[in-house]
Structures are given as structure tokens and as C-alpha cells.
Design a protein around this nucleic acid. Structure first.
Lengths: 337, 337
DNA sequence: AAATTTCATGCAAACGATTGCATTTTGATA
DNA sequence: TATCAAAATGCAATCGTTTGCATGAAATTT
């Protein structure tokens, strides 16, 4: 059963030609006669000739593969993004090598090495929460490998990027909370060195200001995991002037808030409104259904991949860095009025 | 900045040696003198020599990469599996090429081609729901590429496999429902040609029988998506002898049931108990919390990858097919008594 | 001192495809 | 018929590494 893949040499031998002639025939080189081209083409098709990707790779030092650095696959947003990348990459016959940083700086460094030695044609990356220096990304660029950041970008480095419109998404969500009568809105955010976190924070603050509500640091704890949420939500609920709305930086924390709020005897949304971020599966599972901001992860993925491939093909001409922004969409369910 | 990677030839030139001597020095070949080895080693280290993976690939026709065929990344279970695979592959410096079938048969065929032409060393696969013939998997084996199925195996083909203990998992879950007083237990299953579906069904039926409860086909609809659930759950709730428990094949459907049941005015778990399968993020977001069967996706991933790598290294000696079973764990929350 | 063994190293082919530069064949022109 | 241009094909190097075999030098045995 070991039917070794057929090579140019095999075709050449079979047709009494040289490999160069066969090679040129298959790529329709003008030097080759119609007749020879047809013979070669026919034989190649009949024997299912497929150029050996590895050999091609050796010549060009590239292997039709794109590397993806992603914090954690096991999150709705990131897995949607990945899914979009897949779909887009497939159209141009690129394969994806996927690496997780697990939100760990050192691991992120390690995987950039891996991608370099795998000779990927390009890299798509979203930086981990614990990353503070960016030399490893610079190294990718130094090797002249195009790099596109998605979602979590890295300000120190000048590259193309695709980001979610976190600012507007949050602004609209908070505005919605205010429109529906909320006045004291807590903001459960992520560590401040993340751009996405800052943008959302600014969206939140601006929405408050625009509506003449004062920004209160005490209502803006860092709380992006359920672990942290335990204590923080408890504290918020026991404030004398307790918030009447909570905007959480992700759906997991929002879902936790919903349970905790109900357990403490408050009603949602009558006493406290809750809004999340992502529109993951979770937001349809909570009771009441979770109002949330859809990040369009799939679109982030396709867009980032498209941008990268266009760069590779030289179709994206723009000299400087292209920055694409994916619009969000507020999905109103029952956790807000 | 374009510091081309250093090659054997570069080292040879710099040290006035031949590439063969350099090559042998680096792999500690006995023919080479201690002195030469040390010089080469030193120079290589100083200049960060890394063998060119592409060139290696050309010789061996393999490229230290493992292909993964997965139905849809955007599901908790599958993304956990992927995560486990990643972790295990990394230990041995394998990269992962990931392909989604999107539950589509034709696409599955297409991605097997992709993996073959990428010259992966091995393949890990979970078959799509719509797959009925298996020639494309046979093709992988015909090319002498080790194949390990995980979770959704394919009975027609003889290979190593790693599966979840669906039978016992379901048996225990249903048994738990019965122990807590349920007598009419509905089973919302997946299409019958999937092994996992059948195993769960058998676990369900056996649990009923063991407890002297009759199996009723009318309580066993095919219902593995929220779309299908709409009508089916409605029908079940309006039966004159309505079920007092629902076992759903996944957490999404279970979460949908919870909402629907509550909306219809029944209490959970007093009137109707609900149990899911996966232990995804969702199961902590529902109200009440969802009792579910943890599938240990991460472990499925690491185990499958380990098995494959052991085959590749010739460390898994067993002639026939190795079949590993990952234990499940019943996670009892508030949706059951 | 000659013959033989051991040790260290280099040559060259191979993996599969591409490509600049011959070389051969054909046909047209002088 | 000799000359030349055009058309069609082949040669050989290249990408980076590995490896069987040959070569050379030094050390050992007769």
C-alpha cells in the first residue's frame, strides 16, 4: 500500500524528459511546446502529482504556514477568532500552527522561537496578560516575517493590527445602562496594562461623563476572573450606596455576578442590572439572559488573517501600519431593563 | 537586521572543516575527535545554530508536525482537548496543524488532503457528525501515517483511540437521577451513527433497566442542538405523563431545557431534574447550577497526543490497536436533587 | 622498514523542486 | 548551401542536512 508520492523526476523518467522541462511544463512556461506541456499535464493529473511542500519550503525557506499565538483557546472569544482564521487561511491553502501562551510571558517567548524555527510565513498574535516586554515580537519582525496583532495589541511595536472597538462597545453598553435608569454603575475591569482594558475603561468613563455622572474609582475594581469576583462583588453589594448596575469585562464574571446578586436577595434587573462582554454561550444560559457586547470574534479572525495574507501577497500596499477596527454590537437580553 | 540563520556550511567555512564533519560533531559521532567536536560545539552555540527544520523535513519527508482534525473548535470540550494536545506536543517539540471539519463530511475529506500534503508525522482526529464513509482516513494509514482517533471514533477503521467513558458516565448520571427519586427520565441524544451517542444511550438504558424502569422510545428523541430542542422540549413538557428528569447530551441543550422548564412554570429540581454533559463554563452559569458529567477534555487531549507520539517514537509496542478510556466524573449541582 | 590497523576527516550523492545558462533542433533567410 | 535566429529541451547548481564511502595521516604490529 505504500504508494510513494510521485515526483517530478518520476514524471521525467516516464516521459523521457528532464525534470526541468517537466517543471516548466507544469507552470506553463512559454519555452515549452504545447505538445510537451499537454503530455506532462496529462501524466501528472493521471498520477495525482502534487508538488512536495517540504522541497518547495527548502528553496524559499518558507512553508505556506501561518503561526498563531493565542492566550488561551478555551475561551469563546478566542476560539471564535481561531475559527475565523482557519476559514480564511484555508481559502489560500495556508495551514495554521497554533500556540497557546496560557497568559504566560515566558511561554510566549518560547512559542515565538518555535514559530521561527518552523519557518512560518507570517504570525498572528494576541499578547498575554503577563507580557511586559516585546523583544520577542521584534525578533519576528527582524526575521522579516509579517506580524499582525489581533485584539490584544502591543503598543511598543509597529505592526498591522485588528482590534475590537472596545471603547465604543463599552460606551454604548454603559450608555444603555444609564438610559434604562441606572445611576451607580460599577466597572469590573482587567489589569490596566492591557489596551483593551483601558479602552473599555475610557468608554465607561466617557459614557458616565457624557451623562453627567461622576466617575468613582471605588466602583472600578480590577476583577477579570471569578476568583477575584468572590470578594469584590460581595463588597460592592454591601456598600451603603450600592451600585444599581454592574458592567463586567467578560461574560464569566458577569454570570458570576448574576448568581451572587440573586443569592443576596436582589432582583435583576429591577434592583441591579448586569452587562457582560463577549456574547458567549454563557450569555444565553444565565437567568435572566445576559445583556452583553458581541465582539464578533469570527470576524476578527477572518480580518486579521486576510490582512496578513494580503501583506504576504504584496496586495496590501499601505506603507505604514494598517489598523482595522471590528465593530461591536450590544445584545440586549433580560439582565438589563 | 536580516541576520540569516547560520547553517552547517557557515560553521564549516569558519572553522575550515567540511559540512559532514560539522554535522557529525554536533551529533556526537564517535568518528570525530574530542577537540574538533568541542570547537564546533562552541562555535555553534555562540552563533545560535539551529538546524533548519525544512531541510531536515526534505530528507525524512516528515516535518515534526502533527495534524489535528476536529469538528468545531468553538466548543468547550473540543477546545479543552486541543489545549491538552498542545501541552503534550510541546514537550517533544512537535507543532500542531489544526483543521476544523465544521461537522462537514466533504470538508473533512479536504482537510485530510491538506494534512497529507503538509507531510505531518501523525494525525489526531475526531470524526464529524455527517461522516459516513472512511476512505479518507484509510488514506492516511495507507501513507503510513499513524492515526489516533479521539472522542468520536470511527468503527470501520482499526487504529489507536482515546475515548471518554460515555457509557459509565451516562449510567452514573442516570443512576443519580433515579436515586434522587426520578422515574420518567428523558434522554435527549445525538444522531445514532455516532459511537459516543450510542454508548451514552446504552448507559442510559442500562441504568433504567437495572432499576427496573422501562425504556420508552418516546422519551428518547434526537436532540443535540438548541434549534432542535425548541420543539422537542415543548412536546415533552406537555405530555400527560411528563418526564420528571431530562438528561441532555450536552450542556447547551441542558441549559436551554432549564430556561424552558422554568418558563413553563415548573421548578428545578423539585418538578424536573436536569443533567448535562461536559461540565463547560455554562454549567456554572445556569440557575440553578447544572449537574453534569465532566469529560476531562484536557486529559483526552494529552492522552491522545501521548499515544501518538509514543507510536512515532516506537515506544508504544503493542501490535494491535490501543484503546484508552478516560474516566468521567459526575458533577452534582443544584439542577438535580 | 614494511604492512596493517585505527582514527579523523572530506567527497559527493541524496531528498524534490526551481532556474540561469547552455545545447540541440528546426526552420527561415541570404 | 551556408548562416543565423528562434524554439524546445537539458545540464547543473542551489536550498541545508545527512550519510556511505573514500582518503589521508598517524599509530601499531610484524
Amino acid at each position: 500500500m505504500e504508494k510513494r508520492q510521485i515526483t517530478l523526476k518520476d514524471i521525467a523518467r516516464a516521459l523521457s524528459l528532464s525534470t526541468s522541462t517537466v517543471s516548466r511544463s507544469l507552470k506553463d512556461h512559454p519555452d515549452i511546446s504545447r505538445e510537451t506541456k499537454d503530455r506532462v499535464r496529462k501524466f501528472a493529473d493521471e498520477h495525482r502529482y502534487k508538488p512536495n511542500a517540504l522541497a518547495l519550503g527548502l528553496r524559499t525557506n518558507k512553508n505556506k504556514t501561518i503561526g498563531v499565538i493565542i492566550p488561551e483557546i478555551v475561551h469563546y472569544f478566542f476560539s471564535s477568532v481561531l475559527s475565523g482564521m482557519q476559514e480564511e487561511a484555508e481559502k489560500e491553502d495556508y495551514s495554521l500552527i497554533i500556540c497557546q501562551s496560557n497568559e504566560d510571558y515566558n511561554r510566549e517567548i518560547k512559542v515565538t522561537r518555535t514559530l521561527l524555527s518552523a519557518h512560518v510565513c507570517g504570525v498572528l498574535a494576541s499578547v498575554s496578560k503577563t507580557t511586559t516586554t516585546f523583544d520577542h515580537y521584534q525578533e519576528i519582525l527582524d526575521n522579516e516575517i509579517p506580524l499582525v496583532f489581533f485584539d490584544r495589541i502591543c503598543t511598543g511595536i509597529n505592526t498591522d493590527r485588528v482590534v475590537v472597538d472596545d471603547y465604543t462597545g463599552t460606551f454604548n453598553a454603559v450608555n444603555h445602562l444609564i438610559q434604562t435608569g441606572c445611576k451607580r454603575i460599577a466597572f469590573l475591569g482587567a489589569p490596566t496594562h492591557l489596551t483593551i482594558s483601558n479602552n473599555r475603561r475610557m468608554g465607561y468613563e466617557d459614557a458616565l461623563r457624557k451623562n453627567g455622572i461622576q466617575v468613582e474609582p471605588s466602583l472600578m475594581p480590577i476583577c477579570d476572573t471569578i476568583l477575584l469576583a468572590g470578594e469584590i462583588v460581595h463588597r460592592l453589594l454591601n456598600l451603603t450606596d450600592r451600585p444599581d448596575a454592574i458592567f463586567a469585562i467578560n461574560d464569566e464574571v458577569a454570570a458570576y455576578c448574576i448568581r451572587k446578586i440573586k443569592a443576596s436577595g436582589f432582583r435583576i434587573p429591577e434592583d441591579i442590572s448586569v452587562c457582560g462582554f463577549s456574547n458567549s454561550y454563557i450569555s444565553e444560559a444565565t437567568d435572566p439572559g445576559l445583556t452583553t457586547v458581541d465582539q464578533h470574534g469570527f470576524e476578527v479572525g477572518t480580518t486579521a488573517m486576510r490582512l496578513l495574507i494580503d501583506r504576504l501577497n504584496g496586495e496590501e500596499k499601505k506603507e505604514g501600519c494598517v489598523s482595522k477596527i471590528i465593530k461591536t454590537r450590544l445584545v440586549v437580553r433580560e439582565s438589563t431593563k
